[in-house]
């Protein structure tokens, strides 16, 4: 039994050593392109108040080349066209290398900032021109 254990240990140690002998692959990562992500759901955060409002957005990365990058609020001038309208975009960095077909869900809390009293529209733009929208009343 002891012999078996020692032998097992030696085999495992050899396996681990081999597995850890990773090749010296380049530090340079493949080029990344930033893309607007499609968001499937928008939720009101429990922290939704007039001083520090935020929402949760969720969606799916279609393959392993996608990685969360950032979210923006009223990033463009055109986003600020209407009062109490808050336009969100979620961005992912997409690596231009080989990709695994692994769908990965993501959820992020996005801070909108201080909101004044009244009805606010929170619109999350998708990459394809569609959007998810949430209307909240702040009193």
């Amino acid at each position: 039994m002891k012999k078996f254990s020692i032998a097992s240990f030696v085999v495992l140690a050899a396996f681990a050593a081999k597995a850890n002998a990773l090749p010296d692959l380049p530090v340079d990562e493949p080029t990344k392109v930033e893309r607007v992500m499609s968001v499937t759901n928008v939720f009101v955060s429990s922290r939704m108040d007039r001083d520090d409002a935020s929402v949760f957005i969720s969606g799916q990365f279609p393959n392993s080349c996608y990685q969360w990058s950032r979210a923006t609020v009223n990033e463009l001038e055109e986003d600020k066209s209407a009062q109490n309208m808050h336009v969100l975009r979620a961005y992912a960095n997409v690596s231009q290398g080989m990709c695994l077909q692994v769908i990965t869900p993501f959820t992020r809390e996005v801070s909108i900032g201080a909101l004044g009293d009244g009805q606010h529209t929170i619109r999350v733009l998708n990459g394809d021109g569609t959007y998810q929208q949430l209307i909240v009343d702040i009193r």
Binding site: A21, P23, P30, Q67, Q96, G97, M98, C99, V102, T104
Partner: peptide, 24 residues
């Protein structure tokens, strides 16, 4: 596609991103 690669002991290793980590 741009794929980081290396050849080690006759095997081809390709590096693929996976949720902020790497899979070979």
């Amino acid at each position: 596609s741009q794929v980081p690669y290396s050849i080690v002991e006759g095997d081809l290793f390709t590096k693929i991103p996976l949720n902020g980590e790497v899979i070979y």
